[in-house]
């Protein structure tokens, strides 16, 4: 997923979010154009462009985007989260393909971070795959899970195996709500275990696309046994933080 945030005087004026194709440069251009069209500007009117995320090397100092600033995802996450919620100390970012957690101090300086990369079972694709197996829309997955009060602990720790397990559970007449809850609990368990490695400190903030899944948020609260804050439009926090970096660069 490519997310673009445009700021004018540190205020968000445009946002766009598109699925990345295999030509990443073209996808970024498309996302940027969509955002620019929202406020009727052209690229030359943008002072600074900060790139973050997995594909930042693709656009940093590379035409046609020529981003002039790059920043690490964890730094962007912290910056974006603290700007909106200054008491954030642990930011848990689960996106489509990766999950990570960052801990910072009150000044926003990174104390420690951990990530669960290259294993689909700790990321959004896990939920997408299970939604397919249950034949429901991925947008409805969270709400469905909240209708259940029962979790069946999942045996599989792998997305591919979990799909078979979900189908097996369906055949055993377990309801879709119970399965959805079990799936969210399973992934929350992994994300929580990963987060514990850097230490839990309030406030715990959830960002990234996964935070829009209300079932996952509920599962995280239960697994971590503490309250968590979900920032509004969580999937944009990384882009927002990068944009703030771009805004501050200008002021130097």
């Amino acid at each position: 997923m490519i997310k673009v945030v445009l700021l004018d005087d540190r205020k968000t004026v445009a946002k766009s979010n598109i699925l990345s194709g295999f030509d990443q440069n073209a996808s970024v251009e498309s996302a940027l154009n969509t955002a620019m069209q929202q406020i009727g500007i052209i690229k030359s009117e943008i002072t600074n462009i900060a790139a973050t995320g997995v594909a930042r090397k693709v656009i940093y100092l590379q035409p046609p985007i020529n981003a002039n600033i790059e920043t690490a995802e964890v730094l962007a996450d912290i910056k974006g989260a603290i700007d909106i919620h200054p008491s954030a100390r642990v930011v848990i970012d689960v996106g489509a393909e990766e999950g990570k957690a960052v801990r910072c101090d009150e000044k926003g300086k990174v104390i420690d971070f951990v990530s669960n990369e290259r294993c689909a079972a700790g990321a959004g694709v896990f939920i997408e795959a299970m939604s397919r197996a249950l034949e429901i829309d991925v947008q409805d997955f969270g709400a469905l899970a909240l209708q259940s009060q029962k979790t069946i602990p999942m045996n599989s720790q792998c997305t591919v195996f979990a799909e078979s397990e979900v189908i097996s559970l369906l055949h055993s007449n377990i309801t879709k709500e119970d399965i959805a809850r079990s799936v969210n609990d399973a992934i929350a368990g992994r994300v929580a275990s990963m987060t514990r490695r850097i230490g839990l400190e309030n406030d715990l903030v959830l960002v990234g696309g996964m935070a829009k899944n209300v079932g996952y948020v509920d599962a995280m609260k239960r697994t971590l046994q503490t309250d968590v804050i979900v920032l509004p439009e969580p999937e944009f926090i990384g882009a927002y933080g990068a944009a703030l970096t771009a805004a501050e660069y200008q002021q130097k």
Partner: peptide, 10 residues
């Protein structure tokens, strides 16, 4: 000797 555990993407 038994080796217990796993290897995955991470």
């Amino acid at each position: 000797i038994g080796n217990y555990g796993y290897k995955d993407g991470s």
